[in-house]
Design a protein around this nucleic acid. Structure first.
Lengths: 341, 341
DNA sequence: CTGAAAGCGCTTACAG
DNA sequence: CTGAAAGCGCTTACAG
């Protein structure tokens, strides 16, 4: 059966205080006594009960990750980066999926704030995060945002260099002489708007006008990867390609690309002869297509690691952390040109 | 600041016991008293401290997922299924990545068993799980295995119908008249062996002999998706295709396929004219290639949900659960024939 | 219908 | 160098 500190103390012939001191190294203990404790511990195969320790110390060593859409591989990679870094800091990751529903997100945050987590990483479903004020007012814990800029609440944020990445990709297209370039984004959130800005900037710089008809957004909630292939973006692509004379496409993220490229492929449109193509988000499958597809590669795993570092700083030293002002960290993207341009 | 049950009790003018009764509905309380408690709770924005509650009740409401390789999308999908189902049961998922290292796996299990988790889901790095006997001896908690059959330890297991799926795929190839079919597996574990068995069974049934030279395994640990594309399986594919007269390939999983298909694509081998192709594991990108690739589709998200259900049964009713014998649940696969055959 | 009190398994001033 | 005791925030027999 599971043994407690009492049994160890009894077996070693010391007080539970001494057992605690030995196990935590918080006080000097006579070597012989120490040895007796160690012997008892290994004899009973004793492990401290983290619940009790944490209750006493007022912490849980758990960091919550409330993620808007765990079915998106991008966020799974962020989770992986978080796990890697938090483990190094002696913390663990507890994941809660909001499935693109704001109420679920709020419910998740409530659950974690109540005391299960020492801090929060949040990839919000929508920009409005003002609800956090009320919740954190009574239970103040550090919070770090990833991938999307929150509104109505200020804290550390980890983002990709969305505008720059998008700008470079679009510039690569204008440099090749393309003048009619379509933009597809799965959903118009802050991050997608930054990418749109980069796209516009490159067009303006090239002396081109911006045609609103060539800019399309979806509005999806949580849908399966499979249904994305023939969803809104598929329809938008069909519409743009049949009604407008475009020669290049910039796709705003991995989800949009599933729909956009599905249409291109199914209708045998030749890339890059008929239309050049670049997407935000790299995936290993982009080298498996014919031609291979160019991408603005993000590094979600690194975004996770960086977010974890930021949160660890704040939980480790609450006093200095409070003074430290909030920062927005941008993780750089990399343009990878392949056969599609 | 964060308030405790004491403050609620004080504000409501009752004892902390009464507050607990009201909040948990564990005892009938006079409506007026109840109301006063609710008022105090909302006024203080009080939430019970799960750490304290769990310590008292001897549970954490946390289920640990110790996964051999979180960089594999397959396991990320299992994690998603677990999260979905556990949340419904009032539990939460805490993820620990073993990164294909047995020592890390054992360390992770130790951590969780100590009391952080009420139960464990384990996707082991290697088959040998006898070490669990010692650990669970002192801290007995339920455990469910996913994806791989453990050796030296008995418990519930959730697996795909590996042999059947592999058999159907290979049979589809022999039915088309293929007689020289290669088999590629990223790593020879119990699951891959089951798939190999299905492959062999189909060959034997078709009256074909089994050529060991056409059966190749890798030995990778945790490597990036990118490096997989030009790793061991890439080399094996090159070797088999140049030295043996094969007309069809069956790839044992998603990781192997990255290497196998990379070689096929880079060398412009025509599929299915030069060589037909089917892979275990479906991915959305398999419809993006030319031609589209056939697959034995697993349902990892469902595997996660089923594993979660099994574990919830055991944590919910420990007494009856102990009596219940262990079961192996097989989640069926589905052969999806596309352009590559 | 309500409360005083024990206790879950720890950590940590405090005393000696 | 070691221990008795308080206390973290809860739940739950037990008593009234």
């Amino acid at each position: 059966m599971k043994s407690s500190i009492k049994e160890v103390a009894y077996l070693a012939g010391v007080s539970i205080a001494t057992v605690s001191y030995v196990l935590n190294g918080t006080k000097k203990v006579r070597p012989e006594t120490e040895q007796r404790v160690f012997d008892a511990v290994s004899k009973l195969n004793y492990h401290v009960n983290p619940l009790a320790r944490n209750l006493r110390k007022g912490e849980s060593k758990l960091i919550g990750f409330v993620v808007n859409d765990l079915s998106n591989n991008f966020f799974q990679e962020i989770a992986r980066g978080l796990e890697t870094q938090l483990t190094k800091g002696g913390y663990h990751l507890i994941i809660m999926n909001s499935k693109e529903q704001k109420e679920t997100e709020i419910e998740n945050v409530k659950n974690l704030i109540a005391g299960a987590a020492d801090a929060l990483i949040l990839a919000p479903t929508t920009a409005d995060c003002s609800y956090l004020h009320f919740l954190l007012d009574t239970n103040p814990i550090p919070i770090v945002f990833v991938d999307r800029l929150p509104e109505g609440f200020e804290s550390d944020v980890v983002l990709a260099t969305n505008e720059q990445g998008s700008y470079e990709a679009t510039k690569a297209l204008t440099d090749k002489g393309h003048t009619n370039i379509a933009f597809f984004g799965s959903r118009q959130d802050s991050t997608m708007n930054e990418r749109l800005d980069g796209y516009k900037k490159a067009l303006v710089e090239a002396g081109l006008s911006i045609n609103a008809n060539l800019i399309r957004f979806g509005s999806h909630g949580s849908v399966s990867q499979r249904s994305l292939r023939h969803g809104e973006m598929y329809q938008h692509t069909m519409d743009v390609l049949t009604n407008y004379d475009i020669t290049a496409i910039f796709s705003g993220n991995n989800l949009a690309t599933l729909g956009v490229f599905s249409f291109i492929k199914e209708t045998n449109i030749q890339v890059p002869k008929d239309v050049a193509f670049i997407t935000f988000d790299d995936s290993s499958w982009l080298t498996m297509t014919t031609p291979t597809l160019s991408a603005v590669a993000q590094n979600p795993e690194k975004m996770g690691r960086v977010a974890a570092k930021l949160i660890l700083e704040r939980v480790a030293e609450p006093s200095t952390a409070e003074k430290k002002s909030f920062q927005i960290v941008r993780i750089s993207t990399q343009l990878i040109l392949r056969g599609s341009v």
